[in-house]
Every structure is written in structure tokens, then in C-alpha cells.
């Protein structure tokens, strides 16, 4: 039972991180029907920014809580800047060309960002300080769940609730939903679609950055390649849940997290990815649009 609980919570943690990244994929897809393959790199850049900020602040002698908050904030700001600029440079000029053009551009951006960090930083794995404080009352349960896992799950939960409120009730949220449903009509009721798209990239990037900082402090090391792996997994989760659907991205991420966790825990850790992708194939055979995706007919 304890072992099951450990795997369950481990899967929940993984799933939470996947969800933070998958939301960026699914929101961008919902609005401009682009798979932003460089999204994982934004997450990696967030983690690197946090590492640099934390190291500098640590030398300057700041306390752990200050470091955590400042590192998180600056990681979000930097990632947003990269996400925003990437959309303006690599996607916006291609908006009216064929569907493949921005996709290729996205793959290009992904490779560019990886090599940019590789050259500007290093190709080695760098140790990442554990920014998340240890919770003493959890010590007796350390064999089931670590403090950092609690932080990851709770942070993700808060982010999800904020995102839901933002999309459901605010002015910009309504504009996003309207743009996703019918871009031309949204423009005709006065929505500045370019601004909505930029906002979507900013929201997606900030969630990816939060995910990057959390997972880096949990695992304790990063390199320029972490974005690619995490990006592929999160993308899988988004497709699993139904790409374009926000609850779908969260559900897909949790399902993927648990599949990996239980499969490695009960069967074999060598085949983690095999189980994850095998499960994806199975679901797509029976539900081609994903768990919560709608099979939409092309609008005339």
C-alpha cells in the first residue's frame, strides 16, 4: 500500500510538471493551430535563468526564500520575453502561409534555442540548487513523498485554478476563447487577435518557466537538452488529452505521469518511455481526438 501511494504521488508530481508544459502546447494550438515545438526550450530557458539568478543571489548572501521567489519571478519574466519574441519573429510572419511553414519554423526555433544555450552556457549537466524548502512535518513520511513533490503538486494546483479563472471570467480570457472558436469573428467584434496570440504565448511561457524551476530543483541538475525530452512528453500528454482542450491537457498529463510511474514501479524502469508511448498509441486508436478532444468537422 505504501509502495502504491509512493508511486501514485510520484506520478502525480510528474503529471503536474507535464501539465504545466502541456498547457502551453494546447493553448497555442487552440488559438493558432500550431504545434509549438520550441515550447520545451522555453521551459529549459526558465530553468537556466533560475539557476543563474540563484547562483548570483547565493553569492550575494540572500536567504533561501528570497532566492526562490526572485529566481522564479525572473525565470518567468525571461521565458515570457523569449516566448513573446519567438512568436513575433518565427511565427507571426508565417501566419498566412501554408500550415507546414510555421511548424518547420518551430522545429528550427527548438534547435536554435538548444544550441544557443549550449554555446552560451555549457553542454555538461549543471547541479541545480534545491530552492524548495524542506518541510519538517513531512519527515516521517519521507519514504512516500518528498517536500519538493508537495511544492510541485501545490504550485501546479494553484496555477491551474488561476488559469481557469483567467480563461473563464476575465476580459482577456473571453477574447482568447472567442479567438480559438472563430478568429475572423473575434476580430469583427473588435478583438485585437495579435495581442491575444501574444498573451497566449506569454501565459504558456510563464507556466513552462514555473515548471522548469520546480522540476530542476526537484531533480537537482539541468542541461541544454532537458527541454526537448520534457517537451516531447508534454506534447504527448496534450495529444493524449485532446490537443486544444485545456482540461484535456491536465488530464492527459496526469494519465501519462501515472502510467510512467506505475509501469516503472511495478514492471521495469527500463521501459518507462515504451509504456508511455504505448499507452498513447492505444488511446489514439480508440479515441483519435484524445481523451477530451472533440472530433470537429471542418468549418465551411
Amino acid at each position: 500500500m505504501e509502495y502504491f501511494l509512493e508511486l501514485f504521488l510520484g506520478g502525480l508530481t510528474r503529471g503536474s510538471i507535464y501539465a504545466l508544459i502541456a498547457l502551453g502546447y494546447t493553448m497555442v494550438y487552440g488559438i493558432i493551430e500550431l504545434i509549438n515545438f520550441a515550447h520545451g526550450e522555453i521551459y529549459m530557458i526558465g530553468a537556466f535563468t533560475a539557476l543563474i539568478v540563484a547562483s548570483v543571489l547565493n553569492i550575494m548572501g540572500f536567504g533561501p526564500i528570497t532566492i526562490l521567489i526572485l529566481a522564479m519571478v525572473l525565470a518567468v519574466v525571461y521565458s515570457c520575453a523569449y516566448g513573446f519574441t519567438m512568436e513575433k519573429i518565427a511565427y507571426k510572419p508565417l501566419r498566412h502561409s501554408t500550415r507546414l511553414a510555421p511548424l518547420i519554423s518551430a522545429i528550427g526555433m527548438s534547435i536554435f534555442f538548444q544550441n544557443y544555450v549550449l554555446l552560451a552556457q555549457t553542454s555538461d549537466f549543471l547541479p541545480f540548487p534545491s530552492l524548495l524548502p524542506e518541510l519538517e512535518f513531512l519527515e516521517p513520511y519521507a519514504f512516500i513523498i518528498r517536500s519538493s513533490e508537495v511544492f510541485i503538486i501545490l504550485t501546479t494546483l494553484v496555477v491551474m485554478v488561476l488559469l481557469t479563472l483567467l480563461i473563464k471570467f476575465t476580459r482577456i480570457g473571453k477574447a482568447m476563447r472567442a479567438t480559438a472558436q472563430d478568429r475572423t469573428m473575434a476580430m469583427l467584434v473588435g478583438v485585437d487577435v495579435n495581442r491575444v496570440i501574444s498573451t497566449t504565448f506569454i501565459i504558456g511561457s510563464s507556466m513552462a518557466a514555473i515548471g522548469g524551476v520546480l522540476i530542476a530543483s526537484h531533480i537537482g541538475q539541468i542541461n541544454f537538452y532537458i527541454g526537448f525530452i520534457a517537451g516531447i512528453k508534454a506534447f504527448t500528454a496534450a495529444v493524449l488529452g485532446g490537443i486544444g482542450s485545456i482540461p484535456g491537457a491536465v488530464l492527459g498529463s496526469l494519465v501519462l505521469g501515472w502510467t510512467e510511474s506505475f509501469a516503472t514501479g511495478y514492471i521495469s524502469s527500463d521501459y518507462e518511455d515504451v509504456f508511455a508511448f504505448g499507452f498513447l498509441v492505444l488511446i489514439l486508436i480508440f479515441r483519435p481526438a484524445g481523451l477530451l478532444g472533440k472530433t470537429t468537422t471542418q468549418k465551411v
Binding site: 483567467l166 476575465t170 476580459r171 482577456i172 473571453k174 477574447a175 472567442a178 473575434a186 467584434v189 473588435g190 478583438v191 485585437d192 498573451t199 506569454i202 501565459i203
Partner: peptide, 13 residues
């Protein structure tokens, strides 16, 4: 109807 108010209002994110 509320979305129609978008261009007449200014609240930011």
C-alpha cells in the same frame, strides 16, 4: 455580448 465590449474596454492581464 460581453466579448463585443472588448474593444471599448482596457483591462489588461
Amino acid at each position: 455580448v460581453m466579448i463585443g465590449r472588448h474593444c471599448r474596454t482596457t483591462s489588461k492581464i
